[in-house]
Design a protein around this nucleic acid. Structure first.
Lengths: 129, 129
DNA sequence: AATGTAAATGCAACTAAGTTGCATTTACAA
DNA sequence: TTGTAAATGCAACTTAGTTGCATTTACATT
């Protein structure tokens, strides 16, 4: 687990271990505030944001922008790398679920357009609501 | 054209006519700044945002969140209402294109989940770049 | 184990998108 | 023409996220 950090050339600091572990164990995507509350009030804002950025760049996690104006983060080393990715946003409880096998394969882009990456946001109501 | 405003119970003010006309004539989605530059520096920030909100609520336009952290707006009375909608974001020129017929129909959500609305962001390179 | 150093942290100050409260003005119906 | 609810303009606010910089720490090298 923590080897992931070293493998990416990231030093294994206490915060990074806790952050990666927390996201790994989270069933859903977490916002900055969720994370801060989970890890303890004392964690520094910029350090946390910088680490989220570093993790994302390293491909350890991915960032989801569910139109709420607040990014959410999910562990993503195991997920598809850089290809199609779908997220379900519950309009009632605001939970963001990662949808694994959403065949959003057939997307027709106009002539001359090159698709690199597809992100789908599905809005609706989740099973819990 | 301006009848659209009346039809939605929105008063036909100068700014609203200009705003709706501008978005109608725009080939691509426009950010707040794009709009402000187009309509003139003197337009008021809150008035503009409030009108964008009102138009969106009335279904005249739709808002796109392309992960840039800055919403973009596109005329959308003619588009599909509330159903699947895809947008192509060019990573080079940042232009946001509305993709009309993207059959992202087959999306498998888990048991008990109810899909209401699907927004797809396709990232890549556009024909112009 | 001691040490050098690049990377990571903590803090405070900043940026910028978007919102809110309120007094004034305006579209439009009566 | 007039009454009024809606729209505007302004300033002040909120908040997610960033930046600059001095201090500290992980870890490789000797």
């Amino acid at each position: 687990m923590e080897d992931l950090l070293q493998k990416q050339g990231l030093k294994r600091t206490k915060l990074r271990m806790a952050l990666l572990g927390y996201l790994f164990n989270s069933k859903h995507a977490q916002s900055y505030l969720d994370i801060k509350n989970a890890l303890g009030e004392q964690v520094d804002k910029s350090t946390l944001y910088r680490n989220l950025g570093a993790f994302e760049e390293a491909g350890l996690i991915h960032r989801i922008n569910d139109q709420s104006g607040m990014a959410k983060y999910a562990f993503g080393a195991l997920h598809d790398h850089g290809n199609a990715h779908a997220h379900f946003v519950c309009e009632s409880c605001e939970t963001v679920y990662c949808i694994e096998n959403a065949n959003s394969s057939k997307i027709n882009v106009p002539e001359g357009f090159k698709t690199k990456n597809v992100q789908t946001i599905i809005k609706g109501t989740c099973a819990a609501c």
